[in-house]
Measured scan of single mutants.
Amino acid sequence: MSRVPSPPPPAEMSSGPVAESWCYTQIKVVKFSYMWTINNFSFCREEMGEVIKSSTFSSGANDKLKWCLRVNPKGLDEESKDYLSLYLLLVSCPKSEVRAKFKFSILNAKGEETKAMESQRAYRFVQGKDWGFKKFIRRDFLLDEANGLLPDDKLTLFCEVSVVQDSVNISGQNTMNMVKVPECRLADELGGLWENSRFTDCCLCVAGQEFQAHKAILAARSPVFSAMFEHEMEESKKNRVEINDVEPEVFKEMMCFIYTGKAPNLDKMADDLLAAADKYALERLKVMCEDALCSNLSVENAAEILILADLHSADQLKTQAVDFINYHASDVLETSGWKSMVVSHPHLVAEAYRSLASAQCPFLGPPRKRLKQS
Rank of each mutant, 00 (worst) to 15 (best):
S2N: 07
S2C: 01
S2F: 13
P5C: 06
S6G: 02
S6P: 07
P7L: 05
P7S: 06
P8H: 13
P10L: 08
E12P: 08
M13L: 07
S14M: 02
S14Y: 13
S14F: 13
G16T: 05
P17V: 07
E20L: 10
S21F: 08
S21E: 03
S21L: 06
Y24S: 06
T25F: 12
T25H: 05
T25E: 00
Q26E: 05
Q26L: 11
I27C: 06
I27S: 04
K28H: 02
V29S: 10
K31D: 10
K31F: 05
F32C: 14
F32K: 09
S33D: 13
S33E: 13
W36A: 07
T37W: 03
T37Q: 04
I38W: 04
N39E: 05
N39I: 04
N40D: 04
F41G: 04
S42H: 05
F43H: 14
F43A: 12
C44T: 14
E46A: 05
S54K: 00
S54L: 00
S55V: 11
T56I: 01
S58F: 05
S58V: 06
S58L: 03
S59D: 12
A61G: 12
K64L: 07
L65S: 13
K66L: 04
K66W: 03
W67G: 01
C68A: 09
L69Y: 07
V71E: 11
V71R: 00
V71T: 14
N72L: 13
K74Y: 14
G75I: 11
L76Y: 14
L76R: 12
D77N: 10
E78N: 11
E78I: 06
S80H: 13
K81Y: 03
Y83E: 14
Y83L: 14
S85R: 03
S92I: 05
P94E: 11
P94L: 01
P94D: 15
K95G: 10
S96F: 10
E97T: 02
R99Q: 13
A100V: 06
A100K: 00
K101I: 02
K101A: 10
K101N: 13
F102T: 00
F104M: 15
S105V: 10
L107V: 15
L107T: 14
N108W: 11
K110Q: 10
G111H: 09
E113G: 08
T114R: 07
K115Q: 01
K115F: 13
K115C: 04
E118R: 10
S119V: 10
S119C: 07
S119M: 01
Q120R: 04
Y123Q: 09
F125S: 01
F125W: 02
V126M: 12
V126P: 15
G128N: 11
K129T: 11
D130I: 14
W131C: 07
W131I: 01
G132I: 00
F133R: 14
F133E: 00
K135N: 13
K135C: 13
K135G: 06
R139N: 02
R139G: 06
D140S: 09
D140H: 10
D140R: 04
L142V: 14
L143W: 13
D144Y: 09
E145G: 06
E145T: 08
G148K: 01
L149N: 09
L149M: 14
L149G: 09
L150V: 07
L150Y: 07
L150E: 08
P151V: 05
D152C: 12
L155M: 08
L155Y: 10
T156C: 09
L157Y: 08
L157D: 00
L157E: 00
F158M: 10
V161R: 00
V163F: 13
V163E: 03
V164R: 11
Q165Y: 07
Q165S: 12
Q165M: 13
S167Y: 12
S171K: 06
G172K: 03
Q173S: 07
Q173L: 02
N174A: 01
N174I: 04
T175Q: 08
T175P: 03
M176G: 01
V179T: 07
P182W: 10
P182V: 03
R185A: 06
L186Y: 02
D188T: 05
D188L: 09
E189I: 09
E189K: 03
L190V: 07
G191K: 03
G191T: 11
G192Q: 08
G192P: 09
L193N: 00
W194I: 11
W194S: 11
W194Y: 07
W194F: 03
E195L: 10
S197N: 15
F199H: 13
F199I: 15
F199D: 15
T200G: 14
T200C: 14
T200F: 15
D201L: 00
C202Q: 14
C203I: 07
C203Y: 08
L204C: 15
C205F: 12
A207I: 10
E210W: 13
F211Y: 15
A213K: 14
H214G: 01
A216T: 08
L218F: 05
L218Y: 10
A219M: 15
A219H: 15
R221N: 03
S222E: 00
S222G: 05
P223L: 11
P223H: 14
F225L: 07
S226V: 13
A227M: 05
M228P: 15
F229V: 15
F229S: 14
F229T: 15
E232L: 13
E232P: 12
M233H: 15
E234R: 14
E234Y: 15
K237P: 11
K238R: 08
E242V: 02
I243N: 02
N244M: 03
E247D: 03
E247A: 12
E249N: 05
E253S: 00
M254T: 01
M254Y: 03
M255V: 02
C256M: 01
I258V: 02
Y259R: 00
Y259W: 01
Y259P: 01
T260R: 03
G261R: 02
P264D: 02
N265T: 05
L266I: 06
M269N: 02
D271W: 03
D271Y: 05
L274T: 09
A275K: 06
A277D: 01
A277G: 05
A277E: 01
D278Q: 08
A281D: 02
A281K: 02
L282S: 05
R284T: 09
V287G: 04
M288E: 06
M288G: 03
E290S: 02
C294N: 08
N296K: 06
L297C: 11
L297K: 01
L297S: 00
V299E: 02
V299T: 12
E300N: 01
N301C: 06
A303E: 01
L306G: 00
A309M: 00
A309Y: 00
H312E: 01
H312Q: 03
S313Y: 10
A314S: 04
A314E: 03
A314G: 08
D315E: 05
L317F: 02
K318C: 14
K318S: 05
Q320G: 03
A321Q: 01
F324N: 01
F324R: 00
I325E: 00
N326E: 13
Y327F: 09
H328P: 00
S330H: 08
L333F: 05
E334Q: 07
E334C: 05
E334M: 05
T335H: 13
S336K: 15
G337S: 11
G337K: 09
W338C: 01
W338P: 00
W338D: 00
S340A: 14
S340G: 09
S340H: 11
M341P: 00
V342E: 02
S344A: 13
P346Q: 11
H347K: 04
V349R: 00
V349F: 14
E351A: 06
R354D: 06
R354I: 02
L356N: 04
L356K: 00
A357G: 11
S358H: 03
S358P: 04
P362E: 08
G365S: 15
G365I: 14
G365Q: 09
G365E: 14
P366E: 10
P367N: 08
P367E: 15
P367F: 05
R368H: 11
K369Q: 02
K369R: 01
R370N: 03
L371R: 12
S374Y: 14
